[in-house]
């Protein structure tokens, strides 16, 4: 049995909504697990069930070898960072950090020691006497993490903690969270809808959709080898291009081009997925793209345009290439990096 074990966990709300379907998942000690998915997919519900803030309708949750189903949240020894931080507005930072320790009956000197250590680690020592209302967004974020760290819990739970920060701060805090987790080495679950956050933070990633884990794996596994249409579309930015096609006798005929010798026996309607970064320009290539818009990011250019059949398409090329609006590009798929999905089930077939 691993450190945190979810077995056939199901959540049905009193109004009949099924938020989580028979989900099973194991997380090892010290692992950084990220739940990623669109809003309403059940990722937060799953996290809150681990925290004990939601009842488990069916299934078991085991933490460190103990069944947690009926254990009160205060007894679970888990710490959570909330989206809006949920700092205690009437307490100063010191007391925000110390409150959980006081409730556990730890003596004053130990509390002071622990709070000061956590504050130093998070560089909030100068603000200990301030109220949360006098702190900036990033500082509040740190206090919220401090409150989690100071208790030295078995597991950290993060519920979209970065979504209230501006873009620059978000990237900075993302890095800090990752560093901190590596330093402290506490098992963590991080919930986000942002796939970049998910990719950068995760040791392992669970892509969740409609209450089901669609795919579980390291970020690179999931990026390189998406098992379903949903995962392929969700992970990667800009999004993967999808084209309709037909697969017959190992030959894929998409709109305007064909790919032969496909490693699949599937026959029928399919969706072809190609990542914008897996394309390159060459003479007389498969795909012909009429450029409508170029986004210059500096390091890269994102080229948006239409195929012959008016289908929107995106191509990512190095930033040093000049691409004229209105020109026609001829694109090849690099190293056969394309993905074919069964159109009816969304399952990967190649």
């Amino acid at each position: 049995m691993s450190f945190l074990d979810l077995k056939n966990v199901t959540k049905i709300y009193p109004n009949g909504t099924k938020a989580v379907h028979e989900t099973s998942l194991s997380i090892d000690e010290g692992e950084f697990m990220v739940f990623v998915g669109p809003s309403g997919c059940g990722k937060s519900t799953l996290l809150r069930m681990v925290a004990g803030l939601e009842d488990i309708t069916e299934g078991d949750i085991n933490l460190d070898g103990k069944l947690m189903n009926e254990v009160d949240p205060s007894e679970r020894d888990v710490a959570m960072v909330f989206q809006n931080y949920a700092l205690y507005p009437h307490m100063n930072v010191y007391n925000n950090l110390a409150y959980g320790l006081k409730n556990r009956g730890i003596d004053k000197e130990t509390i002071e020691q622990k709070v000061n250590d956590a504050a130093k680690l998070l560089q909030i020592s100068d603000y200990l006497q301030r109220k949360p209302s006098m702190l900036s967004g990033g500082q509040r974020q740190r206090v919220a993490m401090g409150r989690a760290i100071v208790r030295n819990p078995k597991i950290f739970l993060f519920d979209e903690p970065l979504s209230n920060l501006d873009a620059k701060l978000r990237i900075q805090m993302r890095l800090e969270i990752k560093k901190l987790q590596q330093k402290v080495g506490v098992t963590s679950i991080f919930v986000t809808h942002d796939q970049v956050e998910a990719m950068t933070l995760a040791d392992r990633l669970a892509v969740i959709n409609n209450g089901i884990i669609e795919q579980l794996g390291t970020p690179i596994e999931i990026y390189d080898n998406p098992k379903s249409l949903f995962v392929a579309g969700f992970i990667g930015s800009p999004q993967m291009n999808f084209l309709d096609g037909n697969l017959k006798n190992k030959t894929l005929s998409a709109e305007g081009f064909e790919i032969k010798d496909i490693n699949s026996d599937f026959e029928g309607e399919v969706t072809l997925g190609i990542r914008p970064e897996h394309l390159s320009q060459s003479e007389n290539a498969l795909i012909s793209l009429k450029v409508e818009l170029v986004e210059q990011l500096g390091s890269d250019n994102l080229v948006y345009g239409q195929l012959k059949n008016k289908k929107d398409f995106c191509y990512r090329c190095p930033g040093n290439q000049t691409i004229e609006k209105g020109s026609n590009l001829s694109l090849n798929i690099e190293n056969n990096k394309y993905y074919i999905f069964d159109k009816s089930t969304g399952k990967r077939v190649n």
Binding site: L53, P73, S74, R76, A79, Y99, G100, N103, R104, R151
Partner: peptide, 20 residues
């Protein structure tokens, strides 16, 4: 969230009332 956060910090019904 305040209640939930307090719960995770070990507050019971009575201490949530008094402390928050």
């Amino acid at each position: 969230e305040l209640l939930e956060s307090a719960k995770l910090d070990g507050a019971n019904g009575w201490s949530f009332f008094i402390d928050f």
